[in-house]
Design a protein around this nucleic acid. Structure first.
Length: 414
DNA sequence: TCTGGGGTCCTAGGACCC
DNA sequence: TCTGGGGTCCTAGGACCC
């Protein structure tokens, strides 16, 4: 059997989309995430600016220091990227019946059973049939959307994903079935999905730097400590998939959820440029966050069974408080619960740096009128606001008490 | 690395029920 | 009356990913 799982990753996706809008950006150092020197972090960095050490996730302050004088700093345009992501997906669906979105710029495909479809002119280049098909697919993405993409092919998702990372930029890398071990073991542990900064630090402290060193640990306490991750690495080395080959689609990237249950979560949080002093100010901001998540829940056709408040004080201490409720997308009832949670969580008098609201345990909004206790009837004023917003924009209407404009003295966007 | 914002998934303890 | 275990839900926190 040959490798048949493909991971397709769009190269510096946000930067590439910005270059479609403004071709003058091609070949220039580009940072997406905000203005030079602003608060926040880099969401995407072009290869030209990576050469200076700028990386996504880095604070904008550091990026501003490292980037050359002629670097272009752009704000993130969330709406535009989603649109291009859909267009890419449409191309992928022409090549494989099985496409899963793992994020806005990352997709998995299963080419099982497609072999015969792609047996054409393979011998001309020496490519295997699937590798050739994937190259054609990347070319189709380029010609249809203008976006560069890289792809990895392997027997499992994890191998395909790591391979796609090594194929960048704009390349294709195939790891033949049986070659997984030789491919994986020399890699630094951090390259393996699921091993993040914390786990890496622990491993390095134990003298483990590569997957090979991890796998070759002698039996004993150290090996026992990493038993869980070891099992996954060994499984990948053997080329065995975990569960279904493509895994589940990330709920946030599903068009709709056929099961009608557990369609992920919706959250909105905000770090305040000037920390919030009085509780009144905080509650006004909280109402704004409630409005936004409820707006999004109605748009997605879901109600939340669990409401969570997140609160971070100026000393960077973070607490969350959550409560399960009757399924709701109603601002007033969400705000009532969150106000209680806020007072319960407000144990230290320090100024507030961040507030967040999360709706989770979401259920599809089957019934247009959700029955509730008479004294706790949802007041779906939200639907009326949705209509106004559709016509005049999100900020054309807000609930009383919420500040009308973004920015100003209280907060500043990201 | 003086630290954004959107997510997912996992763990662990306690409540509660059978 | 005491003990026990399994299953499930709720809540809090943390790691990780893009």
């Amino acid at each position: 059997m040959s490798a048949r799982i493909c991971c397709l990753d769009l190269d510096t996706f946000f930067v590439s989309v910005e270059r479609l809008f403004d071709p003058a950006l091609i070949g220039r150092p580009v940072v997406v995430g905000g203005a030079r020197g602003s608060r926040g972090v880099v969401t995407a960095a072009s290869y030209e600016v990576r050469a200076f050490g700028v990386r996504s996730g880095m604070s904008m302050r550091d990026a501003s220091r490292l980037a050359p004088k002629d670097a272009v700093f752009l704000p993130t345009r969330h709406g535009a990227y989603g649109e291009y992501s859909k267009r890419v997906r449409a191309v992928l669906e022409r090549f494989s019946p099985e496409v899963r979105a793992a994020s806005i710029d990352e997709f998995y495909m299963d080419f099982s059973g497609c072999e015969r479809l792609y047996q054409r002119s393979a011998d001309e280049t020496g490519d295997t049939s699937i590798e050739r098909a994937v190259r054609d697919m990347c070319e189709a993405i380029r010609s249809d959307t203008g976006l560069p993409a890289s792809a990895g092919i392997g027997g499992t998702r994890i191998v395909a994903k790591i391979a796609s990372g090594r194929a960048k930029p704009a390349g294709v890398l195939l790891v033949p079935v049986g070659a997984e071990r030789d491919f994986l073991l020399p890699l630094p542990v951090r390259k393996f999905p699921g091993i993040g900064p914390k786990a890496e630090a622990r491993m390095v402290a134990d003298g483990i730097h590569t997957l090979g060193e991890l796998v070759r640990l002698p039996s004993g306490l150290l090996r026992a400590r990493y038993a869980r991750v070891l099992a996954v690495v060994e499984r990948e080395c053997a080329g065995v998939s975990n569960g279904t080959p493509l895994g589940a689609e990330r709920p946030a990237f599903r068009e709709h959820d056929p099961s009608g249950l557990r369609v992920g979560s919706i959250s909105n949080e905000r770090t305040f440029f000037d920390t919030l002093g009085g509780d009144q100010r905080s509650l006004e901001q909280l109402l704004r966050l409630c409005e936004r998540v409820c707006f999004r829940a109605r748009k997605r056709g879901v109600r939340a069974r669990t409401l969570t408040l997140k609160l971070r004080t100026s000393d960077f201490h973070t607490v969350t408080r959550s409560r399960s409720v009757e399924p709701t997308w109603d601002e007033a009832s969400v705000m009532a619960t969150l106000t209680e949670l806020f007072h319960a969580a407000r144990d230290r008098p320090l100024p507030i740096r961040l507030l967040g609201v999360q709706l989770s345990n979401l259920i599809a909004d089957g019934d247009p009128v959700q029955l509730a206790l008479p004294f706790d009837r949802p007041r779906p004023v939200g639907h009326a606001m949705d209509k106004v917003r559709k016509k005049y924009g999100y900020d054309s209407v807000h609930l009383g008490g919420a500040p009308r404009k973004r920015g100003g003295k209280v907060s500043r966007p990201g």
